[in-house]
Amino acid sequence: MTSIGTGYDLGNSIFSPDGRNFQVEYAAKAVENGGTSIGIRCKDGVVLAVEKIITSKLLKPGANKRIATVDKHMGVVYSGMVPDGRQFIDRARDEARSWRDTFKTPIPTADLASRMGGYLQAYTLYQQVRPFGITAIVGGFDSELELPVDGQVGSGPSCGAGGKDSTKKHGGPFLYMIEPSGLYWGYYGAATGKGRQAAKAELEKLDFSEEGISLEQAVKEAARIIYVAHDDSKDKEFELEMSWISGADGPTKGRHMEVPKELREEAERLAKKAVADDDSDEEEEKEGEKMEE
């Protein structure tokens, strides 16, 4: 760490001579120690998953959820410092609510990502604050249907000026990842936390095209990726938490909700099997090498 002792890492709002903000880089380090979280955007929905490391046997299984709902159609998962993540979610909910107050319609995923990106960026500017120690993954499904505004009671005139291009497609699944610097990109597959390298390698193998994997397959892939990215030697116990969002005609009817228990358990069973098969393949290869010697 060449930065230590130079004095440029002591606060936000001071660049080092080579143009870096060390506080933001240290925040990214905090993220790298958190349990892996991933998001998958496929043709008909979004899946969020997190490897929740069990820090104590005294914690109640299934309690202390890490994935949160921000609005009906949107969820957030994050890696890094849990209290920072909770604050992020509170703020995201406030943003979603204020959007509804103003526009009487659910906030589009892109707009929430933009607002939260701006919020995190503001915490890189001032000496008095530290950046957020999280990288958050935001998944949402913006309705493809013509939605009534909140509180709408009638449908209005059936003829007259409309201004809608009926050939244009609106809405769909969206996935964004927001880093401590405030940087955010839209993704088909996003991964952060401890196992992000392994997870990204697995995500790159998936087919996200229109002919690609379905939402249900994505749930199974997400479970497998979390199991692959989990490092047995460092952390023994973890819980897999998963949520999903489909369109209005899909299994969640446009809402963000926890993956049902049966499907999650099935996905976990397949994930464990896939990981076990992989391990035994590797051992066979090793044994094969020995035989050649």
Binding site: G62, A63, K65, A68, T69, K72, R93, R100, D150, E258
Partner: peptide
Amino acid sequence: RLILQIELHQDYELEQLP
């Protein structure tokens, strides 16, 4: 609209009460 906000708030709280 007020009731819609309550509905959303319910969902937030329920998440923590499996």
